[in-house]
Design a protein around this nucleic acid. Structure first.
Lengths: 205, 205
DNA sequence: TTGAAATATTGAACACCGTTCGATAAAAGT
DNA sequence: ACTTTTATCGAACGGTGTTCAATATTTCAA
């Protein structure tokens, strides 16, 4: 017992997250447990609880890192595509590509539920807002005649739709066996939705 | 021990599903367990496993009933709306309304994961196909100039998008605090997507 | 330098969970 | 009347997240 003679909170956290991420690149979150993580890093389960408060919070930290990684793949597109429409396509594609490359990490982000009563921490909400802004900014740059309220609605609609398409691509529950390519669906969505949106004259239909 | 003198497989199944559904109209599936169901119906846990093979299969039976209920709210729309476009709007709205009225039942359908290796039974896939057909049929009736392949793609896209919007409406994880009305988003999606789709001349852009 | 406070870490216990299995009682079939 | 099938159970198993008192180490102050 007692303290290890080389303890460093930052390193400890890094050790935990790294091991969890390594696990989730191979196996789904349903097979992960606090006790397994403890064994992987060579600590007792109760030590993990002491530092993360509970299992759910540990997972939330993992999810925050995942969103950071996702953000890191999306931000370069801001410079690469000055045309907001092209950028929106690129973002949607990159988002889906990320989800397909790291399905377990991505799935965990959206399946994870906080314990009842506890609501989402600011540092997590902030990351989500950042991602959402990428989409919203594209729309703002595309048709300046659409008012802010409608733009926000459209951003929500597209955000949710892209999410839904990606979700069905990963585990095609409730989908037909016709394994439709997710990218094809994303392009189809944007093609159709944006065509009407761009020509909107600032009026809701 | 031994057999109850009034045993009837059909009644037993009905008892179980009824109790589970009653539970899920009040509390989320995360709080439900096989042992609780056993206690609710006054049987031993192992009895439930004996009849349903495992916990996952019991939940799948619940989900099948949920899809039946959902289907029952959608099929009347087939007669009520002869115009396929209006019908599509009505279906999307009813779908979302159902999800909002029975969030725990609906959520369970799409969060439930089968054990690895075991794939979805025919009687479940059949129900999903039925629901999907409702959407596909609307599209088929709307623009006969679009080929079958493109129609299938569009049906997939809309299906997934409506699903994503509904999902975000229920637990607005990854959503902004701006609690956008899900019906507003659905109408927005269909307005924009269909406007372009209807005017497509059988050619992919 | 000594003593007190804070911190890190543990192992044992707890209350759950889904599942397995042998025993047993009642029904059904011959 | 006897056998087979079926329904049901209780006990056990290995798993889960969490609590908590105990302990060892470091930190800090007097």
């Amino acid at each position: 017992m007692g303290r290890r003679n080389d303890h460093n909170p930052e390193e400890f956290n890094e050790l935990v997250l790294t091991q969890v991420e390594e696990f989730l690149t191979h196996l789904p979150a349903s097979q992960l447990s606090l006790r397994k993580v403890a064994k992987m890093i060579g600590y007792a389960p109760s030590t993990l609880i002491h530092t993360y408060k509970n299992w759910s919070m540990l997972l939330l930290k993992v999810n925050a890192r995942t969103l950071d990684r996702l953000m890191a793949t999306l931000t370069p597109l801001e410079q690469k595509f000055t045309d907001p429409e092209q950028r929106l396509y690129a973002i949607a594609e990159a988002y889906c590509a990320f989800a397909c490359k790291q399905p377990h990490l991505w799935t965990l982000v959206f399946e994870h539920k906080l314990p009842a009563g506890m609501d989402i921490p600011d540092w997590m909400q902030h990351r989500i807002n950042q991602l959402f802004s990428l989409v919203a900014n594209c729309l703002t740059g595309m048709n300046s005649q659409v008012n802010a309220e409608q733009t926000l609605l459209s951003a929500n609609t597209l955000w949710a739709s892209v999410h839904g398409i990606t979700l069905l691509a990963l585990d095609d529950k409730l989908s037909l066996n016709t394994n439709t390519n997710p990218n094809e669906m994303l392009v189809d969505l944007l093609d159709n939705y944006l065509l009407a949106w761009k020509s909107a004259q600032g009026e809701k239909r």
